Amino acid sequence: MQLVVARIGRAHGIKGEVTVEVRTDEPEVRLGPGAVLATDPPGTGPLTIESGRVHSGRLLLRFAGVGDRTGAEALRNTLLIAEVDPEELPDDPEEFYDHQLMDLDVVTEDGVEVGRITEISHLPSQDLFIVERPDGSEVMVPFVAEIVAEIDLEEQRAVITPPPGLIDDRAVIASARDVEQEGAGDEAPDGGGHGAPGRAGEAR
């Protein structure tokens, strides 16, 4: 199974380094020296990581064969994709890969059907479930402990305790595109965080 682990940002310096937006909880494993990653667009890769370091809180990577700023800039916005065993599970039992969460049924604690998870949106402040409701509309559910009470992979369901207005007639209904545009403005009322009981990630 192929999962996105990072997105390449701008070039850093003149020796081929790039900043990356990390999309994995295990960058030391997925983005370590020697890792060979597929890319989107495919023609950019595969890319082999030559070295990595943290600078001002951001991960910088250098790839084999990319030795100057021009080559680094040409990689901007490329997605880095790792091959992951679909049976592999995170070390922390309260963390989840995206593919584990996709298509889970979402219900409230009293058994009311909300819908089905069709997408995980990773925002800087928190993760969001994009839930398709039976009528075809979509609702955004912050993946935080105050709202997501339980992830039951055996029963293939996520149990939520939604605050007033989240899933009723006053709920904020949006498409996945709206989520990306609105960003952190859709935070949970309490400010949230990368949620417990677990966290979603595109790969770990």
Rank of each mutant, 00 (worst) to 15 (best):
E155Y: 03
I160G: 00
V54T: 15
S137I: 04
S125E: 15
T44L: 12
P86A: 07
V141N: 06
P90G: 12
L79D: 14
A176M: 10
V144W: 00
V5P: 02
P197V: 10
P142D: 01
V22P: 05
Q2M: 07
E95S: 06
R157S: 11
G191K: 08
V139P: 09
V36N: 08
P42G: 11
E50Y: 04
E113M: 08
A200Y: 04
P134W: 03
R69N: 00
E180Q: 10
A82K: 00
F143L: 06
P197I: 09
R157H: 10
G136H: 02
I120A: 14
A64G: 07
P163T: 04
V20D: 01
M140I: 09
D190S: 06
I14L: 15
P197R: 08
G65W: 04
V107R: 14
V54E: 12
D25P: 02
F143G: 01
V148D: 09
L89W: 05
D92P: 08
G67Y: 02
G32M: 03
L123P: 10
V54N: 05
I151Q: 00
E73H: 09
G165D: 09
L79N: 14
G191A: 11
D68S: 14
T70S: 15
P86L: 08
A145M: 12
E150G: 07
V148E: 11
A149Q: 13
E180V: 10
R157G: 10
V29C: 05
R10H: 08
D186N: 14
G9M: 03
P163H: 15
A72S: 12
E26L: 13
G201D: 03
E155G: 14
G136Y: 01
S51I: 03
V107W: 11
R157K: 15
E87T: 13
L31A: 06
D98I: 02
P162T: 03
G45D: 09
A145V: 09
V20Q: 01
L166I: 10
A188G: 03
I173M: 06
G192L: 02
D91A: 10
D98S: 07
R7I: 07
L101V: 13
A6R: 09
M140V: 15
L104D: 05
T24L: 00
E138Q: 13
Q181M: 11
A6N: 10
V18F: 04
V29G: 01
G9H: 02
P197C: 11
V159N: 00
L59G: 00
E187Y: 05
P41V: 08
G198P: 06
P134Q: 04
V139K: 04
Y97H: 12
D25A: 10
D105E: 15
T44I: 11
A158K: 01
D68F: 07
V107H: 13
R53A: 08
L128S: 06
H99R: 14
G195L: 12
P90S: 13
S51E: 13
S175G: 07
A11Q: 12
T39L: 08
A196V: 12
Y97L: 12
E17D: 09
R116A: 01
L80A: 13
G165R: 03
L79I: 04
T161P: 01
